[in-house]
Amino acid sequence: MGINTLNRSLWVFHVNTGSCNGCDIEIVAALTPRYDVERFGIKLVGTPRHADVLLVTGAVTRQMKDKLLRVYEQTPDPKVVMVIGNCGATGGVFYESYNLVGPVDRLIPVDVFVPGCPPRPEAIIEGVVKAWKKLEELEAAGKRKKKRAKEAKE
């Protein structure tokens, strides 16, 4: 039972940290019958406690900083953070605004960036595939570490 199980059952929680709702609508589009991410076991959940992946949209505003940190803490390990859209990655059109404390990776560790304003649903799905690869690498690294520890013991 490894981290690999995550691959086929990613439950996604969506955090809006001050996005214009453009990216959010594209995320919803990925869930609709046309793209149907549920066939890969991806499901939108209503609470961070159930989530494996945090989808963060928006450049983080001062008001949303504490909430984002709290949601990150509330998510059980192992978890992946994906940033959807330019704003979360760099600040986008709000770059260097007085009311921003973002971008997201200043506050929490980010695993995958999906650029675009807004990114297309295909791009979001590709981002999820990248997250799978990342999880696989993590698992392989974990196995190597365990093996090395075992050899060191012997």
């Binding site: 086929r8 149907d36 549920e38 066939r39 890969f40 406690r49 509330q74 059980p76 390990d77």
Partner: peptide, 28 residues
């Protein structure tokens, strides 16, 4: 349910995969 909404839907063993995943997650 997925078929009725004109989707492909998850594989039938999806609940087993979900269960396996939930068992390896952190219990807060």
């Amino acid at each position: 349910g997925a078929k009725m909404q004109a989707r492909i839907g998850p594989p039938i063993i999806q609940p087993f995969i979900d269960l396996k995943k939930l068992l390896m997650k952190e219990n807060i």
